[in-house]
Write a protein that binds this DNA or RNA. Structure first.
Lengths: 193, 193
DNA sequence: TTCCTCCTGTAACGTTGTTACTGATGAAAA
DNA sequence: TTTTCATCAGTAACAACGTTACAGGAGGAA
């Protein structure tokens, strides 16, 4: 009973933090600010999340879950290489749809917060979509045999590299550049026909 | 005369900040900490650099200069595509040699600091090495005709994507992965022979 | 109704970036 | 050489941050 109320309150606070993150960016994510957003004291945050890292971990999990849902919504066709391409484009769409979450998860936007191994494991579930797609390409003989995890890492790095520079403001957004970078990685592992 | 002393002091302070950055990471880059490192008050930092962003900008410029020197030290052979590969490997070596600087410049390691356009222009001088190499490949007919800047951006994103994930601790360092990612990008623009 | 446990708000501590004020220092003028 | 004056460094403070000790209150259990 007590637990139910705690869980609801925790979700409510995380939602406020999430809204704050989306509207004002990571800089507004202060304990006092989140507490003020829902009209309570900071003590509540500390009893429910331990410390700021706990709040950050909650946002991490939420971000990964949103990311995962977007990737899971992709229709799974019968073309293995097409699925890799679809995943790559969905990755970009997901990142641009909620850039603040992407910043938190992959650009270290919350100062001083380093996700624990347990939190990072939640990200692996998202990463697995890519690994499975790479493995399917190998099984179909489209990709050279090898470690699908290693392939997925290269694909991921290509996508993240472009998005990272774009979200950091170093490069202006350009879908063609993203397509070139991910295509290069996607086709690198093709069996030389 | 007064100016000379100021410049020397500014370099001295930046050197202390740089040492602090290398040994204890960006979290130790506090105005009080830098001042204590050289045994002066924080006021000196504010008269010389304006505010913390000024110190960060100084470190930015220093980091770019070190980066540039490493890339400039590469022997320029007569093989244009070989030079692109060499630049890619030198980029990794430079990033791993001074990871804290790479974090500051490309991973936003100093909380709240966003480099101004003028500071980013210093980075363009480093980026130009890559653009020139891409243009040389086009001129030699090794690369398809096109915008060498766009090509360089893709190459850069590939390199940065891997290094970014490695330095963030998301992926363990692996030179083969880096080589695969950059090779994929490097060969993507080859003329289809 | 009483009691006990858990939780919340207040207020504080230490640290951060930043700045107003005061005193010293060093170059320029007499 | 002496005086004047502008400029700069140190002290101490401000607001905001993460965090926590303490006291009071609310809620279920007996």
């Amino acid at each position: 009973m007590r637990q139910r109320g705690q869980d609801a309150l925790r979700a409510y606070l995380l939602d406020a933090a999430s809204r704050l993150l989306a509207t004002e960016g990571p800089a507004a994510l202060t304990m006092r600010r989140i507490a003020a957003e829902v009209g309570c004291s900071t003590t509540v945050l500390y009893t429910l999340f331990g410390n700021k890292d706990g709040v950050a971990a909650g946002l991490f999990r939420e971000g990964f879950e949103r990311f995962r849902r977007r990737l899971a919504g992709l229709p799974a066709g019968d073309d293995p290489i097409g699925r890799v391409r679809d995943l790559a484009m969905a990755y970009r769409a997901a990142a641009l749809a909620e850039p603040q979450y992407y910043r938190v998860m992959f650009l270290g936007a919350i100062p001083g917060y380093a996700p624990s191994g347990e939190v990072l494991a939640a990200g692996d579930r998202v990463f697995d979509y890519l690994v499975d797609a790479a493995r399917a390409c190998m099984d179909a003989g489209v990709y050279r045999p090898g470690d699908p995890v290693a392939v997925a890492e290269v694909l991921w790095a290509a996508a993240h590299g472009v998005l990272s520079l774009e979200l950091a403001g170093v490069l202006p957004p350009d879908e063609d550049r993203y397509r070139a970078a991910t295509s290069a990685a996607t086709e690198w592992f093709l069996t030389t026909s």
